[in-house]
Design a protein around this nucleic acid. Structure first.
Lengths: 181, 181
DNA sequence: CCCCGATCTGACCGATCGGTCAGGGCCTGA
DNA sequence: TCAGGCCCTGACCGATCGGTCAGATCGGGG
């Protein structure tokens, strides 16, 4: 062990991130990634069990933070939960906007893969918290529009500073969300 | 001509709509559509030149209304344009939520196909109008989040009445959008 | 020196994709 | 009755997909 420079693993990750961001997960083939790295497709599959393993490793940090946010939300109720959810999700979206952009609208399909099954439940709780527990239909609609809109667009502003984007999104969320009673 | 019942064409359309809504455009094969209709894949391609032709025919009514909205927006300026854009887009999203849901996050790729090239420009003008012409970054961000959020989610409430959904979305838009000056 | 394990390659696999094609029923108008 | 056109089928095409496999290369430790 402890060989010199088998950094191919990481090169594959950054190449995959670029391709996924450009053409989506489904729209990127292992051949595309291999071409970008400059190795064979078989080499990619030597470092990763399969295509999905590349995505899960890319998304792991963001998913970890999402799970932590979920636990923090579940420790609160009502208005407090709503505030924690809004601030936490905006922060997550800004910090991981590159990773989120990789999924480019493939959320629905990707979430149905078993590896991401628990993400589905977490995002449902996020919507509940944002909408507030009484959950009038209009509140649920607002929460879902906000969540989907931020997820879909946060990657479209690569040249806006983190702090500016966070401020804009948070202000939008506060304006949009109806207070829980 | 004037034969009895060549309604296969329409059956293909409704079957395709169901499959696209369930698994997306890319995620639906011609074989899937044929299976749902109960005919051969070749029969599907007898009625439609290719897969894309099915999608364009499904989207034609919504695209027509979108173009009409675009012209109405371009006839106004500033606050008036913003109001026309918000009300017009919400109305369009509610009326055609089934059709919009078909695209399920495949907007970016599909819009790049030549058949939909002009839609790209129309949606850019929509964002401009919603953001207001001064176009501070935060206003653009708000407009984009709103547009993407409504597009992505309007199909998720098939059992909410048109009027209720329209009211909720319009109220959200009014709260979220920053007034032009 | 030689062997071993980590790394990587090219050839190959079965499945599926969108799309083509020749032909076969079957209805209709002449 | 029969020619012709509409509707449709099954077989087939080349391309591409994710993934497998036997073996080549090569550096380091016994």
């Amino acid at each position: 062990m402890a060989r010199m420079a088998p950094e191919t693993h990481d090169e594959i990750l950054v190449a995959a991130a670029r391709r996924f961001a450009a053409t989506g997960y489904r729209g990127t083939s292992l051949q595309d990634i291999a071409r970008e790295v400059g190795c064979s497709k078989a080499a990619v599959l030597y470092h990763f069990a399969n295509k999905e393993a590349i995505l899960t490793e890319l998304m792991a940090p963001a998913i970890g933070v999402l799970q932590a946010l979920d636990e923090r939300i579940r420790a609160h109720r009502g208005t407090a939960a709503q505030r924690v959810a809004a601030e936490g999700f905006v922060d997550l979206a800004v910090r991981f906007r590159r990773e989120i952009a990789l999924l480019r609208g493939e959320f629905p399909e990707l979430l149905q893969q078993p590896a991401f099954a628990h993400i589905q439940r977490i995002s449902e709780r996020l919507v509940d918290a944002l909408a507030g527990h009484p959950a009038r239909p209009s509140a649920r609609i607002t929460a879902l529009v906000l969540l989907a809109g931020i997820s879909e667009t946060c990657g479209e502003f690569p040249d806006v500073a983190d702090e500016e984007l966070r401020a804009a999104l948070l202000a939008l969320a506060r304006r949009a969300l109806e207070p829980v009673d």
